[in-house]
């Protein structure tokens, strides 16, 4: 088990600044999620950590050692790719055993460890199959088993759930978190799915254009976003933004309700012209406009909203966040 630190890390590909100055400390045993849209640099950052790319500037420190000059195999890391990268010509057993075979462990040791890892992930019955003969979810578990079998210091995961069916994805996510807590390996996890990030991360680092916009626990990221990018990226549907008095006001759709439902706290009232209301079963999304600005509200399906009509909606003052119009940064009142 080890800590990981990125110090002033930069990676330039010609004139593309994939990673543009990143400082992160991952604590021993922590599950850190790198969250961001494609092109934000999160995968590049992970690959730098793995040693698959060389940094242009900066340091990568694993377990208090600077590893910049070490090849991947000497960094004590394990990685799970989005495609799982299982060796197609080897059985599941041989796949999981591969790192141990390379290390030249003795056959009995190998068998013990493979059985431990496969047992942990519930794939003990698949050991003789080939990757082409197992399902996507099973492939993912094999990849994880292979990663864990030599008890790495750091576990890196690059969007390992995105190739799974939506149904399987949820349960896989829950299991993964449970699992990581049990084993306690320091984990760095890349995703573009903000729900996944919120559900899995001990902390989340939101990245955009090669920089970390904010790093913190999920609640912080969600309720106290550092700038408009973080505020707009995290949360589905996204935060509403309205120009008001020279600044940008932001409030979440679930905080934006019909005025009559709100108690008399400090409220900000708005008149919304409803374009369309979508009844999605367990909740209702209302799409409308306040003046020129388009907004979305997220309310209980029981409330009746008619298309084309005007309604009085309100937000609690303490649910509103303010952002600087030019820089997008959060203004604390």
């Amino acid at each position: 088990m080890a800590s990981v630190e990125f110090k002033g890390l930069k990676k330039y590909f010609q004139d593309v600044h994939a990673v543009d100055g990143v400082d992160i400390e991952i604590k021993d045993g922590e599950f850190l999620v790198l969250l961001g849209p494609s092109g934000s640099g999160k995968t590049t950052l992970m690959r730098l950590c793995a040693g698959l790319e060389k940094p242009t500037e900066g340091e990568i420190i694993i377990d208090n050692n600077v590893v910049n000059d070490l090849p991947p195999r000497e960094r004590g890391i394990a990685m799970v790719f989005q495609s799982y990268a299982l060796y197609p010509h080897k059985t599941v057993f041989k796949n999981i055993a591969f790192p141990l075979i390379v290390e030249r462990l003795d056959k009995r040791e190998i068998r013990k460890k493979v059985e431990w890892a496969s047992g942990l992930l519930g794939i003990g019955h698949l050991l003789d199959r080939l990757p082409s003969q197992i399902s996507g979810g099973e492939k993912q578990r094999v990849a994880i088993a292979r990663a864990l079998v030599r008890k790495p210091k750091v576990l890196l995961m690059d969007e390992p759930l995105s190739n799974l069916d939506a149904k399987v994805r949820n349960s896989a996510r829950v299991e993964l978190k449970k699992f990581q807590k049990e084993i306690g390996v320091t984990t760095c996890y890349v995703t573009h799915d903000q729900a996944e990030a919120m559900g899995l991360g001990d902390r989340i680092a939101v990245m955009h254009e090669g920089r970390v916009r904010q790093i913190g626990i999920p609640e912080e990221i969600y309720h106290e976003p550092a700038d408009m990018f973080v505020a707009g990226f995290v949360g589905v549907p996204p935060m509403n933004f309205i120009d008001h008095d020279g600044v940008v006001m932001g409030f979440r759709p679930e905080a934006f309700l019909p005025a009559e439902l709100m108690n008399d706290e400090e409220l900000m009232k708005f008149r919304i012209t409803v374009e369309r209301a979508e009844n999605l079963g367990s909740y209702k999304l209302v799409y409308g406009a306040i003046g020129e600005a388009r907004v979305i509200a997220n309310l209980s399906p029981r409330y009746l909203i008619r298309d084309g009509e005007d309604y009085d909606f309100a937000v609690r003052a303490r649910d509103v966040r303010y952002f600087d119009k030019k820089s997008g940064k959060r203004i604390k009142k």
């Binding site: 991947p72 394990a78 495609s83 010509h89 790192p99 390379v102 030599r150």
Partner: peptide, 24 residues
Amino acid sequence: EIEEQAMIDGCSRLGAFNRVILPL
């Protein structure tokens, strides 16, 4: 990615070539 996985799993670049790329 298969090659990169082999390097992470403990092979040198040439090792990854011999054990994984060549058989495939």
